Simulated assay, not measured.
Amino acid sequence: MKYKILITFFSLFFYLLSNATPTKVMIRAKAKDAKFIGSSIGGAYVTVKNKLTGEILSQGKTKGGTGNTTLIMKTARERDMMITDDTTSGFLAELDIAEPVFVSIQVVAPVNKKQASVTATTEIWVIPGKDILNDGVIVEIPGFIVDILTPRTHQFISLKTLSQKKVNIQANVVMMCGCTISKGGLWDAEKIEVNGIVKKNDTIIDQIKLVSTSPNLFEGNFITNETGTYEVIISAYAPNTGNTGVDKINYIITQ
Rank of each mutant, 00 (worst) to 15 (best):
K191G: 13
L95A: 04
T119H: 01
I27F: 03
K74D: 10
F36P: 07
D247N: 15
Y237P: 08
Q115N: 13
D206E: 06
T213Y: 01
N195A: 10
P239N: 09
I127F: 06
V137Q: 14
V167A: 00
T66F: 05
V25C: 05
P239M: 10
S58K: 07
G220F: 00
K130C: 12
I37L: 12
T47M: 02
G143V: 05
M176W: 01
K35E: 13
N19A: 09
I72N: 01
N243P: 08
V46D: 00
I83W: 09
D206A: 05
E219D: 01
P151R: 07
M175N: 14
I138G: 10
V126H: 06
A29M: 04
I124R: 14
N195E: 03
G42P: 02
P142F: 12
T229M: 08
K183W: 04
A76Q: 13
Q255H: 10
G42I: 00
Y45K: 00
I233E: 13
G220Q: 00
Q155F: 07
V246R: 10
L162C: 00
N19G: 07
V194D: 09
D86A: 12
G60A: 00
I223W: 00
G65W: 11
W125P: 05
E99Y: 12
D86I: 09
K32V: 13
G43Y: 02
G129I: 11
N225V: 02
Q115K: 06
T62I: 04
M73K: 09
K30T: 08
L57V: 04
F218M: 05
S158T: 11
V101R: 07
P100W: 05
G136W: 07
G129K: 07
S40H: 11
E226M: 05
M175G: 11
L159H: 04
L159F: 01
M26F: 06
N225A: 02
N250M: 08
V173R: 03
D96W: 12
G65V: 10
E226S: 03
W125C: 03
D135F: 05
M175H: 14
M82H: 10
K61S: 04
W125Q: 07
P151D: 15
A109R: 02
E55V: 06
I124G: 04
S40T: 12
A20Q: 07
A93I: 08
Q207M: 06
P100D: 13
T241N: 08
T161W: 03
P110L: 03
E99P: 02
D247H: 11
V25A: 02
W125Y: 10
D80I: 10
V146W: 04
K199C: 12
K160R: 10
C177E: 05
I157N: 00
A20C: 13
K183V: 15
T70M: 03
R77E: 07
N68G: 01
